[in-house]
Design a protein around this nucleic acid. Structure first.
Lengths: 147, 147
DNA sequence: CCTTGATGTAATCATTGTTGTTACATTTAC
DNA sequence: GTAAATGTAACAACAATGATTACATCAAGG
């Protein structure tokens, strides 16, 4: 209940994977394997493949099969914002309304849903605005500067 | 994987409970019972008591025991923002870094943490700014207008 | 001082999401 | 064909949320 180890690391992993591919390609390689990426992320290659599969659906990544198989960027790092990545992998809202519909005969129970929905929409919009400010090119720049 | 029934309804329930108490008190009652609130929210009274217990720690609610027991507001609805409620019940971050520390020998693995942390801090700040804009008085007004 | 009605809180369970893992069919350059 | 990787299904481990039961505790009022 304290340290809160929950929360999603999906966005972190996805950004990590794409940034890694971008740097690897920039160094002259055609494709990166899920094995290589998983080694940098420190997780299982299947986790990477699953995530990159979702990113591919959004056009952010692409893959080749057969011999010489691997992953490449769907478009340049500078053309991918964290919002793009977020939307590709996190369709769900941050906040939810009631699990069971509240009592509609109560004034509060009846009106609280729409009231909170309006707020949540604004919150999600602010969150997206903020994520849209950073591209993976920015992330790579920060990463290289830290080294 | 589609409808995403997850996400937290804790903020929704907490706002609902406090708003209900506020309206009930405004109508001349001293205290509200977790039973009454649970009926409006459509959940179990214990869920309400647990949540109000956390809100009490933050000074947003208060309770009386014994005969005539129940809950009351810690301060006026107009003096409680959704950020206050959020902070009272949601200490954890929206996004998390890697579960296992990434490979420190890899440039990306080494630098990605701080880079993403900076972004996440900005996102949380934006989220808080947005939640701070709405008071429970605003919520109650919207609720009553919807009726 | 005892009854009553509510809080305070522990314990348990069901459900769900995330992550890690194994296994294996599929693909394609050589 | 062979080799090396993707594409996926299946399953286990773990944590968070929420629902529920149970019961000790408290305090006003008779």
């Amino acid at each position: 209940m304290e340290s809160d180890v929950s929360a999603n690391s999906r966005l972190t992993i996805a950004a990590h994977a794409l940034t890694w591919i971008g740097l690897y390609q920039r160094r002259g390689h055609e494709v990166a394997t899920s094995e290589q990426i998983a080694t940098s992320v420190n997780t299982n290659p299947v986790v990477i493949r699953r995530l990159l599969g979702e990113l591919r659906k959004a056009g952010l990544a692409d893959s080749r099969r057969g011999v010489g198989a691997g992953w490449m960027l769907g478009r340049d790092l500078a053309a991918i914002t964290l919002l793009d990545v977020y939307q590709a992998i996190e369709p769900g809202p941050v906040f939810a309304l009631h699990r069971a519909t509240p009592n509609p005969e109560c004034v509060v129970g009846h009106g609280i849903g729409p009231a909170m929905s309006a707020v949540y929409d604004d919150v999600e919009a602010a969150l997206r605005r903020e994520l849209a400010k950073t591209t993976l090119e920015d992330v790579l720049r920060d990463v290289l500067q830290a080294a």
